[in-house]
Write a protein that binds this DNA or RNA. Structure first.
Lengths: 154, 154
DNA sequence: ATGTCTGCAAAAAATTTGCAGTCCC
DNA sequence: GGGACTGCAAATTTTTTGCAGACAT
């Protein structure tokens, strides 16, 4: 249950962003809140979640309450959101690129049996632990995906 | 410097697969060694490496010594190799899906400054260390990518 | 000749680009 | 009205599918 790491705006931003606060939320991140962007953001930030570009397109266009948008706009907008730091792009596996509303440093546990994706605390990576690595390097990011199954291996 | 974990065939299979041994190598993994597959495998297993489908296509078709192949065949063949366990598909980042000749359990260190990809030993993940997780789950796979830079952050 | 398998052209899906129309000043 | 920006049609790129031909009985 992580917040968007936004200090002010405590009522509008909880685990997600309330509909009325979306415009301010976008504006605060230097994103002009156009109709299309608000529509996409409304669905994306409805709650803490991991969605594909396709799912977002579907949800936006099936919701009579928001403008409908083209696929290109969904891609361009999600990429803009990533650039502005309100979304994170995650390659859950080679066939599944998702956009994650949790932009804090964290990792994922993917349940292969039911498809659930669970966010977990970042692990501490010590380059010292990796043999033979150049110690002058500095870590700029760590992606960790743990695939699990419910039942025991047979 | 990891081998392909193949016991017999010690001369043909070192860190890579020698050209002459390719057909036997494919056959051993229940892959009929057709001209196209041999061409693709020759370039892929030339040495321990991480290549995109596109790079493989280019290399195969620029090599007068091997049959040229269509893009579809490259995709289908690489997928077949993954299914048969002689390649691993790695989502290095959302924009870069690579095929890795190292199929043993391992992780990656990606140097963002020079593009180098380095294989490292698998980390031991203890579900006990992850708070709030259902302990009846069992881990079926762990992907870890560490992004590093040469110089210190400014 | 018949059933299985291969390679690839064509189709489909995913992503990017270029530009017509808007929005500010 | 002019520079900057937006959304999307069209182009491009990536991936999948379907089927004509090859191959092994």
């Amino acid at each position: 249950m992580q917040s968007l790491n936004d200090q002010d705006e405590k009522s509008a931003v909880g685990t997600a962003v309330s509909c009325s606060g979306i415009e301010a939320f976008l504006a605060k991140h230097k994103i002009k809140p156009t109709r299309q962007r608000v529509a996409i953001a409304t669905h994306m930030f409805e709650k803490e979640q991991h969605l594909s570009a396709d799912t977002i397109l579907e949800r936006v266009n099936n919701d009579a309450g928001t403008t409908s948008v083209s696929k290109a706009t969904v891609y361009n907008t999600l990429k803009l959101f990533v650039k502005q730091g309100i979304l994170k792009e995650v390659a859950l596996d080679p066939q599944r690129i998702l956009f994650d509303t949790n932009v804090s440093d964290h990792h994922h546990v993917l349940n292969l049996d039911n498809g659930d994706i669970r966010d977990i605390e970042p692990v501490k990576i010590n380059l010292q632990d990796i043999e033979g690595i150049n110690q002058n390097l500095n870590v700029s990011g760590v992606d960790l995906i743990i695939r699990v199954r419910d039942s025991e291996p047979d």
